[in-house]
Write a protein that binds this DNA or RNA. Structure first.
Length: 305
DNA sequence: TAAGATAAGAGGGACAT
DNA sequence: ATGTCAGTCTTATCTTA
């Protein structure tokens, strides 16, 4: 590493652009006229050298930089009650005072952090609901679920956006609104995996029960997306009701199931529809539709007319 | 061009360790 | 808590009608 580095400036004496910073003696020198421009450079780097990450860690004396993403910008207060800074014992009355102080400090900072978290979360949830055109009431129930999570201290260590998305998904599921987890996570900044982890956590920790996700709910949504007519949609519903009675819908992706039923009934009614179009409308792959509709035909012993 | 077939890979549930 | 297993879905590629 060179001890000299160029400086982007011109010398005010000779006009030369040849200014050089000499790290070793802490001066900026003009190579044109020899003038010392500045002799008190502040070195922002560490004065020690380290060759391994471990060494760097052991030599550093500063903490991480402050961050706006932390509710207290990374600064927090610690109040010790066992002794003074040097480990010397303190009197019992002093100690009692310190205990009280610490309690107060912990309480107020905790409340602040909860408030800030909620503030952020509500912004995130608003954006999410707006994007997905969620009705007011469901938006509210999602917010309530989030508050419960926050109240139980379950958001700590998890992403606000993921928990917010999971709360929304739960609200939708409880209201039997046919939105998939994928739709929610796609609109969120977190991925499906993360959101579904949080979703399971909410279910578990808050003891929520949801009605099973029934393919029947997706029929009209997928049907209209793919431009399937009413008659075929009715036929698909019938098909799915039978399938549900036979218990062959459990464990399958409801969207895929509904799309397959729509495919069968459309073909039966002589309507021109491709697997590709339905796959796109249902947000599943063609392969899934194929597997589902093959399965439906087999298990229900249906035949093409 | 649509549909079918096949295979690899991921993620989650059930169950055992 | 971690590992394994069967079953599901996705992605990609190739073949068939």
């Amino acid at each position: 590493m060179s001890l000299y580095s160029k400086v982007r400036a011109t010398c005010h004496e000779c006009g030369s652009g040849h200014l050089v910073r000499d790290e070793k003696v802490g001066e900026i020198i003009c190579h044109g006229c020899g003038l010392v421009i500045q002799d008190t450079i502040i070195d922002n780097g560490p004065e020690w050298r380290a060759f391994t990450p471990e060494e760097r860690e052991s030599k550093r004396r500063t903490g991480p930089r402050t961050s706006l993403s932390m509710y207290d910008k990374g600064f927090s207060t610690s109040i010790f009650t066992k002794g003074d800074l040097y480990g010397k014992k303190i009197s019992s009355s002093e100690r009692y005072k310190m205990l009280r102080l610490r309690r107060m400090s912990v309480r107020t900072s905790l409340r602040k952090s909860v408030e800030r978290n909620l503030f952020q979360a509500m912004i995130v949830l608003n954006r999410l609901c707006e994007k997905l055109k969620i009705p007011r009431g469901l938006h509210e129930s999602a917010a309530l679920i989030y508050r419960k999570m926050l109240g139980k201290g379950l958001v700590r260590g998890r992403s606000i956006a993921a928990v917010a998305a999971a709360s929304l998904y739960l609200a939708l599921r409880r209201a039997n609104v046919p939105r998939t987890l994928k739709e929610i996570s796609d609109a969120s900044s977190r991925n499906k995996k993360e959101v579904s982890r949080c979703y399971r956590l909410v279910l578990w920790e808050l003891g929520y029960k949801t009605p099973i996700d029934d393919p029947i709910q997706y029929v009209s949504k997928i049907g209209s997306n793919a431009g399937i007519d009413q008659e075929a949609q009715m036929r698909a519903l019938e098909l799915l009701r039978k399938a549900r009675k036979m218990g062959i819908t459990v464990g399958k992706d409801p969207s895929g199931m509904a799309a397959a039923a729509l495919y069968i009934s459309s073909i039966e009614l002589g309507e021109k529809v491709t697997q590709g179009r339905l796959a796109e409308a249902a947000n599943v792959t063609e392969v899934t539709i194929r597997n589902r509709y093959k399965g439906l035909l087999r298990d229900m012993e249906l035949k093409w007319d």
